[in-house]
Design a protein around this nucleic acid. Structure first.
Length: 188
DNA sequence: CCTGTGATCAGCT
DNA sequence: GCTGATCACAGGC
């Protein structure tokens, strides 16, 4: 029997569970990227989530298959990357907020127009720019190029706290990070 | 350390 | 018409 293409995490789970499981996983886009060090969970019951009010043109990917990308434009300027999780029709995802730059650092510096390793991918907008995330990536599967996900090699120590930049459901501790990482968008 | 502002657009009221 | 899952830069303490 043919072995299924394995993603390193099970995306058919609650956004919070997936967000925790993604810390330490290596994310590459066209072989450029690094270790995920910060994520946030958003599900449909959550008033801070794009999916809260149901499907729209923008958030359609959140209501599609799990294990696919949801790319949205933030503040009219930045492209941000999410991983869709749970079953189709529910509308949940995990925002990838920061990675530790490891592979293709020169390419990321070029796209960002700056050198400082700590600021290359520290935040969803910066990460999107560094990885070359575009609308064309919206709805694409994470188990095939240009995406490449690789399992964590060690069990990370998690930092947990409230999400950043939202005004609703502020108290939900749905932001997860690699404790002590210098590549976070902000300290916990 | 902190606060304010401009860039720029989809979705909501 | 206003609000954001943001960032960079300017200015004040």
């Amino acid at each position: 029997m043919a072995k299924a293409v394995a993603l390193p995490v099970d995306f058919d789970a609650d956004a919070v569970v997936v967000a925790r499981a993604l810390i330490g996983v290596t994310l590459l886009v066209h072989r450029v990227g690094g270790v995920i060090v910060e994520t946030e969970a958003y599900d449909q019951r959550d008033p801070a989530s794009h999916s809260h009010s149901g499907p729209t043109l923008r958030n359609a990917a959140m209501f599609g298959a799990s294990g696919h990308a949801y790319v949205y434009r933030s503040y009219g300027i930045h492209w941000c990357l999410n991983f869709v999780c749970r079953e189709p029709g529910h509308g949940a995802g995990v925002l990838i907020r920061a990675i530790e730059p490891v592979h293709g650092i020169d390419a990321m510096r070029e796209r960002r127009g700056m050198d400082d390793l700590r600021l290359l991918c520290a935040g969803p907008g910066r990460l999107g720019q560094a990885l070359g995330i575009k609308p064309a990536h919206n709805g694409k599967p994470l188990h095939a190029p240009p995406f490449d996900l690789r399992a964590a090699t060690v069990a990370p120590t998690l930092a947990i706290g409230p999400r950043i930049g939202i005004s609703k459901a502020r108290d939900n501790p749905w932001r997860f990070g690699l404790a002590g990482s210098p590549y976070l968008s902000r300290r916990f």
